[in-house]
């Protein structure tokens, strides 16, 4: 039983990261119906930028671990957000009126570009975050030691999900985003600047991915230029599992995917872990063709 709970927390920790990346994925998808395969690489860029800023500014030495990391996170979000806006302008905007899969290929091209750009700038070796940024001592929950960083990641993804949800549901811009997601043409007729909405979405989505990359760097220490592809794929899986385009769905899908992986590895087979996760995904989609929280609307292609 103790092992079960241990594995459950292992799964939640991994799932929290999937959820964090999936939030950005699903947000972009919700408005543009675009599977942004470059999202994983924006995540990698976040991890690298975070490390560069961390070592060059030495913020954490001056203002302490938590505040330093908080400020860094904002800087990384800003920078990756700008890259996201540029990406949309260059690679996706010209394809907005074309068949949906054309934009997917453009996204794949962007992914290859980013991955190799990181390799050329930083080199092919592994990079390592400093280990002593945050206190190492674990927090005890029900008598079980849980590393502090795990709790931070989970808290961060929940906080981001809730604020994103409130932002989309309660604010003026959020309303515009929802309107654009339903029908861009009609939104434009209602006086909504759809281009601006898309720009905002393409700032927030990548920013979330970027900060997730930085958190992975801090938590696991090791980063390299190919890591985004795998995480991107997992996040896409998580977003689909929860119902793509749906913000709480991304959260649920991410956590669930992490738990399925951990329990599948623990109780069925480690070597088949990813296959088990995909089998569960396929079974869920057979029963619920639009994911767990996805709306059951007939899609007209």
């Amino acid at each position: 039983m103790e092992q079960f709970f241990q594995q459950l927390t292992n799964g939640l920790a991994v799932g929290g990261i999937y959820a964090l990346i999936a939030l950005g994925y699903t947000m972009v998808y919700g408005v543009l119906k675009l599977i942004n395969f470059a999202h994983g690489d924006l995540f990698t860029i976040g991890a690298y930028l975070g490390l560069t800023l961390l070592t060059s500014l030495a913020l954490t030495d001056h203002v302490g671990g938590f505040l330093g990391i908080g400020v860094l996170a904002l800087m990384v979000m800003g920078l990756v957000g700008i890259i996201g806006i540029l990406l949309e302008r260059i690679a996706y905007r010209p394809l907005r009126e074309s068949p949906r899969l054309s934009a997917v290929v453009s996204a794949l091209g962007a992914s290859i570009f980013f991955q190799n750009a990181i390799m050329l700038v930083y080199g092919a070796k592994f990079y390592v975050y400093p280990q002593d940024l945050l206190p190492k001592s674990p927090v005890f929950i029900f008598g079980m030691p849980v590393p502090l960083m795990r709790i931070l990641i989970l808290v961060a993804s929940v906080v981001m999900m809730i604020s994103l949800y409130l932002f989309v549901q309660k604010t003026r811009i959020g309303t515009a985003i929802r309107a654009a997601a339903i029908d861009q043409g009609a939104a434009r007729l209602m006086g909504i600047d759809v281009n601006r909405v898309i720009m905002i979405v393409f700032c927030i989505g990548p920013a979330l991915g970027g900060v997730a990359g930085m958190m992975v760097g801090i938590y696991y220490g090791q980063i390299n230029f190919t890591m985004g592809w795998n995480y991107g794929l997992k996040a896409f899986t998580a977003a689909i599992l929860g119902g793509i385009g749906n913000i709480p769905g991304a959260m649920v899908g991410g956590l669930l995917l992490g738990v399925i992986e951990a329990l599948g590895a623990a109780y069925i087979s480690m070597a088949w872990k990813d296959a088990i996760a995909f089998v569960v995904l396929i079974l869920i989609l057979i029963v619920r063709p639009t994911g767990l929280l996805g709306e059951r609307v007939a899609e007209k292609i």
Partner: peptide, 22 residues
Amino acid sequence: ASARMLFYGLAMMFMMIYRTQG
């Protein structure tokens, strides 16, 4: 050399942008 895949990614992107239907 090692920048070849970088150019490849760019080429994919721009070909798609200029011929949006394929």
